[in-house]
């Protein structure tokens, strides 16, 4: 069975922010909510690196462990999704997530946040696929159409890889073999407890 993962090839990422823009546009994510973001380490210094991050769809996901209403579930191919009808906006998944993936529309006094929103691996949510309800709550469902997440598919340098962990790890390994240097499967240790 396939196991969906993200992998960012840091040697290729050129900090163009196209993945962020594509995601926002595809799913019509509101202002202030970023399902995907680009973080630059050592910005402006020699060896600066840009890394694109979103929900990594962890095995034994911390967000699911702490959710007081137990609204997370994992699809058979490892995508971590949540039910916005159950979410109470407590913020706990945001505290627990290693990657800062959970987002909320509000940050107001008395802990009012609104429903949590995060990357769905373009797999929609617990609604009829391609329904109006799914579109407004979770965004489009590309996986049901046999397509991979838009951020990775449109990445100009093919830095961002998404898909079955074995398939994308193979592609990445071939690249590293050809260009030399050490592989860096960023975040896999924290998300899946393993390295490539």
């Amino acid at each position: 069975m396939a196991r969906m993962k993200f992998l960012c090839d840091v040697e290729r990422c050129i900090e163009c922010h196209a993945c962020v823009t594509a995601c926002k546009n595809e799913h019509e994510v509101p202002w202030g909510v970023n399902r995907r973001r680009v973080i630059v380490m050592d910005d402006g210094q020699p060896g600066e690196k840009a890394i694109s991050v979103a929900c990594m769809h962890c095995s034994d996901a911390p967000c699911a462990a702490v959710c007081p209403v137990d609204c997370f579930y994992q699809t058979a191919d490892g995508i971590v999704l949540h039910d916005k009808d159950l979410c109470i906006g407590c913020g706990y998944c945001f505290y627990a997530c290693p990657f800062g993936a959970p987002q909320y529309p509000q940050q107001t006094a008395f802990g009012v946040r609104g429903k949590m929103d995060k990357c769905t691996f373009c797999a929609g949510g617990p609604e009829e696929p391609h329904s109006e309800a799914e579109l407004t709550k979770y965004g489009t469902n590309r996986i049901a159409e046999g397509k991979l997440p838009l951020c990775a598919e449109m990445c100009a340098t093919k830095a961002l890889l998404a898909g079955d962990g074995d398939v994308i790890a193979n592609i990445y390994r071939k690249r590293v073999m050809r260009r030399g240097g050490r592989p860096q499967s960023w975040g896999w240790q924290a998300a899946y407890g393993q390295n490539v």
């Binding site: 069975m1 396939a2 969906m4 191919d77 996986i143 049901a144 046999g146 397509k147 991979l148 990775a152 598919e153 093919k158 890889l161 998404a162 898909g163 079955d164 398939v167 994308i168 592609i171």
Partner: peptide, 13 residues
């Protein structure tokens, strides 16, 4: 969908 998605990854990346 796993086959379709694997093919897609092969051709896309």
């Amino acid at each position: 969908r796993s086959d379709a998605l694997a093919d897609r990854a092969g051709s896309a990346f």
